[in-house]
Simulated scan of single mutants.
Amino acid sequence: MSASLLYLADRRALFMGTPLTIRRHVLPVSRMILCLEGELRYQPFGEGPLIPCSSLLLPVGLPVTVDSSEALIADCYLDVCGFDYAVLRQQARRCEHAIYCDLRDEQPLREMLNAARLQLAPAAALWPQLEALLNPADLVASAEHYSDPRVEQVVARIKRTARDNLSVDELAAGVGLSGSRLLSLFKQQAGIPIRRYRLWRRLHYATCLLAEGCSLTEAAMGSGFSDSSHFSRTFSDMLGFQPSALTRSHCELKILVNPANGGESAAISTPPELAASSFKCDAHGRG
């Protein structure tokens, strides 16, 4: 079986492979989960029977359990401002418990992602093709979505300064708002508290440090956590498994960071042996 892959970019993150052991957790950003092989099931709010599906679109902040057993999945963490989510939900064949299921045009996406996984596609090749399939022009034009430009500016600043852990008042002052007004506006727009999003971006940066070969302690301290225990608790709370799972010698997980990333991750590039590989996909998403 191919190694699992974790792609990190400025707007999104993408995991492909057999998931690590996952417990019930609350989503830090909205997610699209696509079954590549096997069976995908979910349990809304962590209660009731497991419901089968071929793909899921999960809103931010929803407590959910996803059971993929031994399946291969593509798990895409979408942009925090909600544009991807607004576009993709138009494709859902059904909606249950605020969860959109079974996207209409998922097959081209499945074929492209499977080709990327099998060919170990470099990050710079994968993201443009994924962008085109997540946000086709016709659905972009009809998407009902508004993002306050002040929130977008704050998100961009948090990305640039993830390890600095700027205060809410500092972030608010940069866009001419009070701290309390920014707290309210960010929650309204993004669906999560700003403090939780700041933690998410620090986890993103810490994972980039792990990709560079840093230890858990070095990644924790380098991304602004007080210690490795705080980092591990936050990681587990948001993602459902311990970060130590990413560093175990038997864990076949490759982390690929987009060399075009802005902000704190800009210095981390795709490993040379991956950058040299090619990733080809035809108009129908086939490799």
Rank of each mutant, 00 (worst) to 15 (best):
G263E: 03
R160D: 11
V154L: 03
E273R: 12
F15M: 11
L139C: 02
H145P: 01
S277K: 14
H204I: 01
L113E: 10
G82Q: 00
E252G: 04
D105R: 13
G285R: 00
A220L: 04
Y146H: 15
L14G: 07
Q188Y: 06
T270H: 02
Q153V: 08
E106K: 08
P259N: 04
R196I: 13
E106V: 10
I192K: 13
F235D: 07
G174K: 11
P108N: 03
R117A: 10
R181N: 13
V168D: 08
Q119F: 07
M221Y: 02
S228E: 14
A13R: 14
F83A: 00
P136Y: 02
V154M: 00
R31W: 07
Q189H: 05
R195W: 11
E212I: 00
A206F: 04
D138F: 05
C95G: 01
L72M: 09
L113N: 09
S54G: 15
G174Y: 06
E111N: 15
A3G: 06
M32Y: 12
G191I: 08
E70Y: 00
T21P: 10
R94Y: 12
V168R: 12
P128E: 09
G48W: 11
G240D: 05
V80E: 14
D10N: 12
F235L: 09
N261L: 08
V29E: 01
A121Q: 10
M112I: 02
T217G: 09
P128S: 02
Q43T: 12
E111R: 15
C101R: 15
A116P: 01
L88T: 02
S2P: 15
L130K: 03
S54I: 02
L216V: 02
S68M: 06
S215W: 01
P63R: 11
R195E: 15
S265Y: 03
A98V: 07
R110L: 15
R31N: 09
S69R: 14
Y77G: 14
K280D: 13
C251G: 07
L246V: 03
V29S: 05
A132F: 05
M32D: 00
L20V: 01
A137Q: 07
S69L: 08
T161H: 14
R41F: 10
E218Y: 04
V80Y: 06
F225I: 07
S69W: 04
S54D: 15
E264M: 10
A206K: 09
P271S: 00
Q129H: 14
R11T: 06
